[in-house]
Design a binder for these strands. Structure first.
Lengths: 118, 118
DNA sequence: CTGAATCCAAAAGGATACTG
DNA sequence: CAGTATCCTTTTGGATTCAG
């Protein structure tokens, strides 16, 4: 979802489908596994685990196991992870401002360009 | 590569693997099909066509067929497409500043966390 | 030159069930 | 609660070939 679009380098894509939302969910402080599951809306534990592991590997989040009978694990942004908040905000601002226009264009194109796809 | 990460909306991903680089290639003005092929480094015509068609459908680029014996087609950013340059620059700045740190973290994690994956 | 057609491999994401 | 283990579907991107 987040492309490292340096002109001279091969294209690198950072993160998967859920990375952006996870970063925003962690913006306000550490969250538990289940506290991430719910607001993400329908992500499966397998995918959430994979994504969080990848982000941990990349130094974007920390994973803290806090024992106890109902096990508890906290995820939090690292300093590096917080540096993503800036560009992420730029993307969100763009979405709020221009995504409707993009979707309008998409609808319009489907109406004019291909009236009967049957 | 470009996630519309509004908190309340379902996640929408804008563009594919090459969208970011295409936008940057078009930043300086219209480009022809073959002028996009080369700097993108190894994209196949099929994928480039698909990506450009999607961007045209979304109102991000215009496609202008200029006849002639060697056929010529120009692609250019629309006003909407140019609004992407801002957030895109933020992403590129982030990449330049923090991508090395991310890759370092990735290497370090692979060394410490899993010494013998055989 | 531009791009459509076909076929294909890999990866991402998801459903479901089970474990410490 | 916080995952792990399997299996599966869909999507994406690519190689190759052919056409206007």
């Amino acid at each position: 979802m987040f492309a490292a679009c340096l002109p001279g380098t091969p294209l690198i894509q950072i993160g998967g489908k859920w990375t952006a939302k996870i970063v925003r969910c962690l913006e306000g402080g550490p969250r538990r596994f289940s506290e991430l599951m719910v607001p993400l809306g329908g992500v499966t534990p397998k995918v959430l685990t994979e994504t969080l592991r990848a982000m941990e590997r990349d130094g974007l989040v920390t994973r803290t196991v806090r024992g106890g009978v109902p096990q508890r694990v906290d995820y939090a942004l690292t300093a590096l992870g917080r540096t993503l908040l800036g560009p992420m905000a730029a993307c969100c601002d763009w979405s709020e401002a221009h995504l409707p226009a993009l979707l309008d264009a998409r609808d319009a194109h489907e109406s004019t360009g291909r009236p009967a796809p049957s």
